[in-house]
Write a protein that binds this DNA or RNA. Structure first.
Length: 629
RNA sequence: GGCGGCGUAGCUCAGCGGUAGAGCGGGGAUCUCAUAAGUCCUAGGUCGGGGGUUCGAGUCCCUCCGCCGCCA
């Protein structure tokens, strides 16, 4: 069986970040799972290198577009091996083969009458590389880039999406798992309720030259999305390499939710217009939030994959990414969470199980796999318990529910740890029950073996080390079959204890991301230092009078201990005469502001209760100027 | 404005008609093979508010509040 999986090709206007890493790790894990199942896998990733934003990023970097994309593509290409990503091919949209295919497809669609040429007038945002509708504008500016759009009138080529809209709707209805998780399918169905606008797929060279030239009209280059999506075909050699058919029939895309529309609407319709079947499935994941800020490539708020790997190791990072995020939903990323999670599940539970088991084998059986011997009550339960969790794991992983799959595996680890505790091999040794001891350790070694095989797609390096320590050859052992068969270890095989697999991290290594934690309330939290910036003091009101012409304002003279004037909006709640002599709390280092002609050098604190405004006052006798904090 | 989602123990979330659950954190106990790890016990949370359907509702319906997404 063939299996074809893709990541999006990443737009090279920014460095690789956590979001790219997650998508790519997901694709890699699925690819490895399929290989474990004996399937033939093609895993495609790469870079998207055309468009206006690239030109501008290149200019900023002081490079030509060509130099710039070469450099950035290399950055991506070098990042993935660090994360143990094993792709089949890395495609770049600037490759001649890809460019030829795009031109070929444009020519084909043009001949088939799928494309129309027309004039369009509108407001263009260079940041978005698209025209905006007047309704989208916020204060006359682009809602995303906060810059005013430029009025432009141009002739362009359009792709009439609505012609295939009914077909797509029908396809979606007939294939409930075409887009998943289902929430995103619903979203696309919603999109298709309204007629689709024609998609403008050209850009005049006068405005943008960094793109693929239209084959039948050299005045234009191709819109980046139209160009980019076709990588999924050019990457497998369509149409020249005949093996493309085998792969295409099994195509599954992994994307983040921000590019749902191009993948769920434009792309299937493009394929339809080309006379090709749609891909098989589209898997959509959410965002990693760094506290509150979104992981967006436009914001500088990114976590560098290579930094994480250097701090925590690829396997830990891969495990955490899959375990922490419910695929499809957003999740929060922090290094603290990474440390907590991997300490608990990898160091304490799994790693410790490995180490204690191998230690006992070393100590009690001179480092050789003991004889399984006779089965006792509890032995079969352990084996069946672990195997059923592993079956469950494979099921969940196959459906992209990685967090649940790994939870199932943790249950298996837990079963084994309980088994150790219940059987207490050290007691058996003491009592000289060697036959029993032998069986117990054999059971545990088998547990480690099947766990290692099952985990290999997620943590390939750790799995390999573990299998080697068990005296096995990873190449021979890596199959789903081996993970689901109990009793493959041969007695007498030498095993190594090896170093601790997942050393416990004492405390989170300093945060890579610098931003303030926020509570569920959405309220931003600040360190104490932040509060200390405010000079809060006790002041005594020495004079008070109404500000002429206002209902709410009082002009106060306050001693704190120097005298200063300030304006307070409390006239509706306090009469001037009742304030004189009162001790109040004021903010003494506010930038002075002129209010109604009066210079206000501070602000008085008051509580806004249901029964009106109440001044905040010190509870007892305090001298003016006393610090509050 | 339209469509949709979410709001359950300190934190992250599962449950989706029948006596409130898991993991983490916190508290207690215990074994000693082990990475101060394991194992066991322990969370008394108006399941956002209100109303309704039902013998019975986090679980269905309505409504309100608060977040969020997509579209316009």
């Amino acid at each position: 069986m063939a299996f074809y999986i893709t990541t999006p090709i990443y737009y090279v206007n920014a460095e690789p970040h956590l979001g790219h890493a997650y998508t790519t790790v997901v694709a890699d894990v699925v690819a490895r799972l399929k290989r474990l199942q004996g399937e033939e896998v093609f895993f495609l990733t790469g870079t998207d290198e055309h468009g206006d934003k690239i030109v501008r990023a290149a200019r900023t970097a002081g490079l030509s577009p060509r130099e710039y994309v070469d450099r950035m593509a290399e950055r991506f290409r070098q990042t993935w091996p660090l994360l143990h990503i094993q792709y089949s091919r890395f495609i770049r949209t600037t490759e001649p083969y890809h460019q030829r295919l795009v031109q070929q497809v444009l020519a084909q669609l043009y001949e088939k009458g799928e494309l129309t040429f027309g004039e369009y007038e509108g407001l263009y945002c260079f940041g978005c590389e698209r025209f905006l509708t007047p309704k989208e504008l916020v204060d006359g500016c682009c809602p995303d880039h906060h810059t005013p759009p430029t009025p432009l009138k141009e002739a362009n080529y359009f792709f009439d999406l609505s012609r295939h809209q009914e077909w797509l709707l029908d396809h979606l209805r007939r294939h409930p798992d075409f887009i998943q998780p289902s929430g995103y399918r619903e979203e696309v169905l919603g999109l298709l309720r309204e007629p689709l606008e024609p998609l403008c797929i050209s850009r005049p060279k006068s405005r943008l030259s960094w793109g693929i030239e239209f084959p039948f009209d050299p005045r234009f280059v191709t819109y980046v999305w139209f160009d980019a999506l076709l990588n999924y075909l050019s990457g497998i050699g369509y149409p020249e390499d005949p093996s493309w058919q085998k792969w295409w029939a099994a195509a599954e895309h992994v994307i983040a939710k921000d590019i749902l529309k191009p993948h769920a609407v434009y792309w299937p319709i493009m394929l339809r217009a080309m006379g090709l079947p749609p891909y098989r499935r589209l898997h959509v994941h959410g965002y990693w939030n760094l506290h509150e800020a979104k992981m967006s490539k436009s914001l500088g708020n990114v976590v560098r994959p290579e930094v994480l790997v250097s701090r925590y190791g690829a396997d830990r990072v891969r495990y955490f990414l899959l375990r922490e995020m419910a695929f499809g939903q957003d999740a929060e990323f922090s290094e603290e969470a990474l440390v907590l999670r991997t300490n608990a599940e990898l160091a304490n539970d799994l790693g410790n199980l490995v180490f204690r088991t191998l230690s006992m084998v070393k100590k009690y059986f001179q480092g050789q796999v003991p004889e399984p011997g006779r089965e006792f009550p509890g032995d079969r339960e352990l084996a069946q318990g672990i195997l059923s969790r592993i079956r469950n794991y494979f099921e969940e992983m196959g459906e992209f529910r990685f967090h649940r799959g790994l939870a199932a595996l943790n249950e298996a680890v837990n079963l084994a740890n309980r088994y150790v505790d219940r059987e207490a091999p050290w007691e058996l040794k003491k009592k000289g029950e060697l036959e029993r001891l032998s069986r117990v350790l054999y059971q545990l070694l088998e547990g480690l073996r099947v766990l290692a095989v099952a985990l290999s797609p997620v943590m390939p390096r750790s799995a390999e080390i573990l299998l080697q320590n068990l005296g096995l050859s990873p190449e021979e052992e890596l199959s789903v079959e081996a993970a689901l068969t109990w009793g493959r270890l041969r007695p007498g095989t030498p095993v190594e204890r090896g170093p601790v697999l997942f050393p416990r991290l004492e405390r989170p290594i300093q945060e890579a991301s610098k931003s303030s934690p926020e509570e569920k309330t959405g309220q931003e939290l600040y360190p104490l230092e932040e509060f200390k910036k405010w000079d809060l003091r006790v002041g005594e009101v020495v004079a008070a009078e109404r500000v002429p012409g206002t209902d709410r304002l009082l002009k106060l003279t306050v001693r704190c201990p120097e005298e200063r004037t300030l304006v307070a909006g409390i006239a509706e709640h306090y009469r001037p005469e009742e304030l004189v002599g009162k001790k109040v709390v004021l903010v003494a280092n506010l930038r002075p502001a002129r209010i109604r002609g009066v210079l206000s050098e501070g602000m008085i604190l008051a509580a806004k209760g249901s029964s009106g405004l109440k001044l905040v006052v010190p509870e007892g006798e305090v001298e003016p100027g006393a610090e509050v904090g």
